[in-house]
């Protein structure tokens, strides 16, 4: 199976995402000005500061040429994983509900958090244990949605790092093929850095793609 990791000007977690994905499959980088998704099975919109995060986090990146292809890919049922800035971009372009606001304490937060997997019935979490230890690092991570959403990950009680509504750390769209989360699974794939729990998200995707019936 093949992952495609998007690189915008200002993206900084693309290499870690590519290395993490390469542990379970092939992983290519996709440039923000290209429309060709190179036949990938999963698109990863990684973390960082796309286009400097000017105006609002993710507000400019949503209009990148590659995002037109990603939106089309998602509407056809393709699997899309948005991490941190990628989550913000997916919310800005309407693939996911809600928005990310500045942390309630106004400070950058960088720490390991414990997450409860509240929905294992997604292509992104089927191989995950009930609880994950994964780092967060952001200033704009306070999730907000006026409508009910399909929550996949919650910060464990007492672990909410940003004032996120109902401790929400990750959500999927109604169709279940687009997932966004603030924590960084790509930074938790090697015991050297303290946790390999993030790898279970990439492994879940490999399982899901492997079981897919090829389109005739």
């Amino acid at each position: 199976m093949k992952f495609g990791v998007i690189r915008f000007p200002g993206t900084c977690d693309d290499v870690d995402a590519q290395l993490a994905a390469a542990r379970v499959g092939e992983a290519a980088l996709l440039w923000h000005r290209d429309r060709d998704l190179q036949g990938v099975d999963v698109v990863i919109v990684p973390g960082g500061f796309s286009y400097g995060d000017y105006l609002r986090a993710g507000a400019i990146a949503r209009f990148a040429p590659v995002m037109e292809s990603v939106i089309e890919f998602a509407h056809e049922g393709g699997l899309v994983l948005g991490i941190c800035n990628g989550f913000q971009i997916l919310c800005e372009c309407g693939l996911l509900p809600g928005a990310l606001l500045v942390n309630d304490h106004l400070k950058f937060v960088f720490r390991q958090v414990r997450l409860d997997v509240v929905d294992h019935n997604t292509p992104f979490t089927r191989n995950c244990p009930p609880s994950l230890s994964i780092p967060v690092k952001h200033t704009t991570g306070r999730y907000y949605s006026p409508e009910p959403v399909q929550v996949v990950l919650r910060y464990a009680p007492g672990e909410n790092p940003n004032g996120s509504q109902d401790d929400i750390a990750g959500v999927v769209n109604n169709a279940g093929n687009v997932f966004g989360l603030m924590p960084h699974p790509e930074h938790a794939v090697d015991a050297l850095t303290g946790s390999t729990d993030g790898l279970t998200i990439f492994e879940s995707l490999r399982t899901a793609v492997g079981e897919r019936v090829p389109v005739a």
Partner: peptide, 8 residues
Amino acid sequence: RLLANPLI
């Protein structure tokens, strides 16, 4: 479309 996010 760009300058504001009407949701928030």
